[in-house]
Lab assay of single mutants.
Amino acid sequence: TTLHFDLDGKKLQYTGVSEEIARLVEELKRRGVDLKEIVRILEELLK
């Protein structure tokens, strides 16, 4: 799965993300978590 974000005018793309992580990101968005925080979490998970 590939995730795309537009953060402060920067286009971020994460490829090869598992379905689980993609679902987690969608859930965080639904809960109103700040996009910067979501990206920070995502980068930690993908290390």
Rank of each mutant, 00 (worst) to 15 (best):
K36I: 10
L42E: 00
K10H: 12
E43H: 05
R40W: 10
K36S: 13
H4R: 04
R40C: 06
H4Q: 11
K11I: 04
F5W: 01
K10L: 13
Q13E: 15
G32R: 07
L28M: 14
L24A: 14
E27F: 07
G16Q: 07
E20N: 07
E44T: 11
A22G: 08
L45Y: 08
E19V: 13
V33G: 07
G16F: 04
K29S: 11
L24I: 14
I21L: 09
K11H: 15
R23E: 15
E20R: 06
R23V: 13
T1A: 10
K10N: 11
R31T: 14
T2I: 08
D8C: 05
V39C: 03
E37H: 07
R40H: 13
E27A: 09
E37W: 06
E37D: 12
K29M: 14
G32P: 04
D6N: 05
I38Y: 01
T2K: 05
E20S: 09
V39G: 00
T15D: 13
L45S: 11
G32M: 14
K47D: 11
I38S: 01
D34L: 10
L45Q: 11
K36D: 07
D6M: 04
R31C: 11
R40A: 12
L42I: 06
L42Q: 00
V17I: 10
L42S: 01
E43Q: 05
I38L: 07
R23N: 15
G16W: 03
V33L: 07
F5M: 04
K29F: 13
R31W: 07
H4D: 15
D34F: 06
D8G: 06
L24E: 15
E37G: 05
R30C: 07
R30F: 15
L42A: 03
D8H: 03
D8M: 04
L7N: 02
V39S: 01
K10Y: 07
I21Q: 10
K29D: 11
Q13M: 14
L12Y: 12
V39T: 03
E27W: 05
A22H: 08
K36R: 15
D6G: 01
I38H: 00
D8N: 05
H4P: 02
E37A: 09
R30H: 15
D6T: 06
L3K: 00
L28D: 05
T15A: 10
V25M: 06
S18A: 07
S18G: 07
E27C: 09
D34S: 10
T1L: 15
V33Y: 06
R23F: 12
D34W: 05
E43N: 09
I21P: 02
I21H: 11
R30E: 13
K10Q: 13
K47T: 13
I41A: 08
D34H: 10
S18W: 02
I41N: 08
E20L: 05
L35R: 04
L12I: 13
K47Y: 12
L12W: 05
L46E: 03
V33P: 02
L35S: 09
K10R: 10
L35N: 10
F5E: 02
R40S: 12
G9I: 01
K11F: 06
I41W: 08
L12P: 01
G9M: 01
L42R: 00
K10S: 08
L3S: 00
R30Q: 15
S18P: 15
D8P: 02
K29W: 10
K10C: 09
V33C: 05
L28R: 05
E37Q: 12
G9A: 02
R40Q: 14
R40K: 12
T15V: 14
V25Q: 01
E19P: 12
L45R: 11
V25A: 04
H4I: 15
L46C: 04
T2S: 10
I21D: 08
K47A: 13
E19H: 14
R23C: 08
L42Y: 01
R31G: 13
I41P: 00
Y14D: 00
I41R: 12
E27T: 09
E20T: 08
L3Y: 01
G16Y: 05
D6L: 07
K47H: 13
T15S: 10
K47R: 12
R23L: 15
T1W: 04
A22K: 06
V17Q: 01
E44N: 08
L24Q: 15
K36E: 10
D8F: 03
I41Q: 11
E37L: 09
K10F: 07
L28P: 00
K11E: 14
R23W: 08
D6V: 06
H4E: 15
T15F: 10
Q13A: 11
K10T: 13
R23T: 14
R30K: 14
V17N: 01
R31L: 13
L46W: 04
V17P: 01
K47G: 13
K11G: 06
V39L: 12
T1R: 11
E44Y: 10
V17C: 02
D8T: 02
V17S: 01
T2Q: 05
L3P: 02
I21W: 05
R40P: 05
I41L: 13
K29N: 10
L24C: 08
T2E: 11
L35A: 10
E26A: 09
L7D: 04
L46Y: 04
V25L: 06
R30L: 15
D8Q: 04
K10M: 14
I38W: 01
R31E: 15
V39W: 02
Y14T: 00
F5G: 01
K10I: 14
L45I: 10
D6I: 07
L3N: 01
E37F: 06
S18C: 03
I21M: 09
G9N: 03
I21K: 03
V39F: 03
T15H: 14
E43S: 05
T1K: 14
H4L: 10
R31F: 06
L42N: 00
K11W: 07
K29I: 14
E44Q: 12
L45E: 12
T2R: 03
I21V: 12
Q13F: 11
G16V: 03
A22R: 08
S18H: 06
L12A: 04
Y14L: 02
A22S: 09
K47F: 11
K10P: 02
K29V: 15
R23H: 14
Q13S: 14
G32L: 11
L3D: 02
R23Q: 15
L42C: 04
L7P: 00
E27M: 07
E37K: 09
T2C: 07
G32D: 13
T1I: 15
G9Q: 02
T1S: 09
G9K: 01
E44S: 12
L46A: 03
Y14P: 00
V17T: 02
V17F: 01
T1F: 11
D34A: 12
L24Y: 15
E26R: 06
V39I: 14
V33F: 06
E19T: 09
R40V: 10
L7A: 02
